[in-house]
Design a protein around this nucleic acid. Structure first.
Lengths: 341, 341
DNA sequence: TTTAGCTACGCAAACGTTTGCAATGCAGTT
DNA sequence: AACTGCATTGCAAACGTTTGCGTAGCTAAA
């Protein structure tokens, strides 16, 4: 009962015409007579003809496929982004080749090779947090495979990217708390190595100085983003001379850890101690004790924009031109969102 | 600065030998002399030769690619599953072509076509909840493209699948509560239309009768899985004659809704009212008030098993045989896991 | 010296398309 | 009658591989 897919050749043979005619007929090439065109299409329909994409890929040197490499598929942020990427690519008739690096630079390199061999037309990347060299991505330029980075972008020039600037959102977050009357505002920040950590700190300081308040360094503590680390960080803040009445946390995970810990200490969440966080999780809607507000990073939007950019690159490189002189640098401003409870 | 990828042909020309020799040399074919083999490999290395997979795909009729169609990438369950799929496929040198149906049967059909045209070697599917006909999947048999279903499987014979049986887990869940002394155990179940709803109910009843307790139908209520629906369901249960002291909820979302609502009613979670749920969310680790236990459905494991099966199918169909006479039907037993808090 | 049997390589077809460049037939124009 | 021009169609190369089969050259056995 096994059927080999119908080929253009078979159609040609049955109809007693040449393959080229069939090919053109199916593509509505104007130089093919209407009657033949109709005949071909009819038979193609009957035989359930479907073009063999692998052949077309080879012939055209294009695959209508984009590769996506990101650190962790199961993280809420990325699964939301990949969802957007797939949606957007689908609309443009592109398909998504997916791979996760698990934040392993070595694997990331291999994946890039694999993607290249698969002849993806372009690549969407969120780099691993340990990745130190970006040569494997840069190499793709030689092959005219455009790369668009998103969210986790490398600190190198001449790249296309879309990212979310945390500074504005942080300023909003701190201002929000100030407006609510808080004066001692703590921050549980991320590890010093991450760019995002710096942006948050900057935002915090700017918000304070903008409001003519002095910045107390002891109110910003680092943490390694684990539950233990968060607990320690919170304890540290609570023990500080100016005990904070509100805290900005690096992300939702940290917020939840902190909230959990604070609850155990019989601190009333968002009354005795107000929380504001950065949204990684869509799930806070389901929870009881959540940050009063979150800085939204728009993973879906980031994925969408990045894909749009890649599509644009793909459709305007027809000239086979060299390295472009202009680069997309899309910054999505983070935005404070009050959480409905 | 643009480089066209090196081809086997160029290597052949430079070395003054034929393409077939180069090809064989690169594959360590024994009929090629050691010296030529070395020469070829050396040059290939210098020229940074990478085989063009699209050509190989065409030639071999295999793409080393598996398609994955699932309803929602951004749902925790599926993102965990896809993570497993990618990991497992990667180990076997396969690549993942990803698409989401958004529970839209029409789109699902189109995706199957697309996957077929891309000549994926096999397909992994979790069907949409509205999908009523499975013809689009069945058609793939004709083309010898194996399909393995997981989690959401269609109710048709002669298919490979891996799914999670909720009955055992439910029995464990109810027994767990019984052992803890509860006698009035409520259940907030899903809509009657879903298979999973039936399995849960069966499990509940079996657990009761096994313990020689009579089954009170008023303690099982349906709900549409929304927050509103859950509230209503909980109110209904709390108003029932035998007010339950414990509740089994259809999934974590429902559990969280219910817990939230109960908290507002000043009910002490897991003291006045104990919860047991089914795990869809890895995030309950981050929360404060969570079900005392959850029935784990092992999304990662399901994805892994499904991929393994597909790989097996792919490697044993070499005979080009007809429809197999045996089908993989892997049931993962759900399992009660006590949630550490 | 013939012959068999290797070793080491090349030829060419095949995979299923697309597409530049003819080539054919025919109508209309001079 | 010769020519131009157009509407249709076919030929064949090309995309980059793999692989069955053929064939040189050589060694060793008869």
């Amino acid at each position: 009962m096994q059927t080999k897919p119908t080929t253009i050749k078979e159609i040609a043979q049955i109809l007693g015409i040449s393959v080229s005619t069939v090919s053109r007929a199916l593509h509505d090439h104007p130089s093919i007579g209407l009657t033949t065109r109709a005949k071909v299409k009819k038979l193609a329909g009957e035989l359930n003809y479907e073009p063999n994409q692998t052949a077309i890929f080879l012939q055209k040197g294009k695959t209508l496929t984009i590769g996506v490499i990101l650190p962790e598929l199961s993280e809420a942020f990325f699964s939301s982004a990949i969802s957007a990427i797939e949606d957007t690519a689908y609309k443009k008739n592109y398909t998504v080749l997916l791979a996760q690096s698990h934040d392993d630079e070595q694997k990331e390199k291999q994946l890039v090779e694999k993607m290249k061999n698969h002849r993806v037309d372009g690549l969407l990347v969120s780099v691993g947090k340990n990745t130190s060299s970006y040569q494997h991505f840069e190499n793709l330029k030689k092959y005219n495979i455009p790369v668009v980075y998103f969210d986790r972008i490398p600190a190198i020039p001449n790249i296309h990217y879309v990212a979310c600037n945390m500074e504005i959102g942080t300023i909003e977050a701190v201002s929000y708390l100030l407006k609510k009357g808080h004066r001692a505002i703590g921050m549980i920040n991320g590890p010093q190595t991450m760019v995002a950590t710096g942006e948050r700190k900057e935002g915090y300081i700017k918000a304070m100085t903008k409001n003519r308040l002095k910045y107390d360094p002891s109110l910003i503590v680092s943490c390694d983003l684990t539950e233990e680390g968060t607990k320690k960080a919170l304890d540290e803040l609570l023990a500080s001379k100016r005990k904070p009445t509100a805290i900005v946390t690096f992300n939702d995970y940290v917020a939840l850890f902190a909230i959990k810990h604070a609850s155990k200490l019989n601190i009333k969440i968002n009354k005795d101690l107000e929380f504001v966080s950065y949204a990684n999780l869509p799930l806070i809607n389901y929870m009881e004790n959540i940050p009063a507000a979150s800085v939204e990073q728009f993973p879906y939007l980031q994925g969408q924009k990045a894909t749009d950019i890649l599509m644009d690159l793909l459709h305007h490189q027809g000239t086979g031109g060299n390295e472009p002189s202009a680069f997309y640098k899309v910054i999505i401003e983070s935005q404070l969102v009050e959480n409905k409870k």
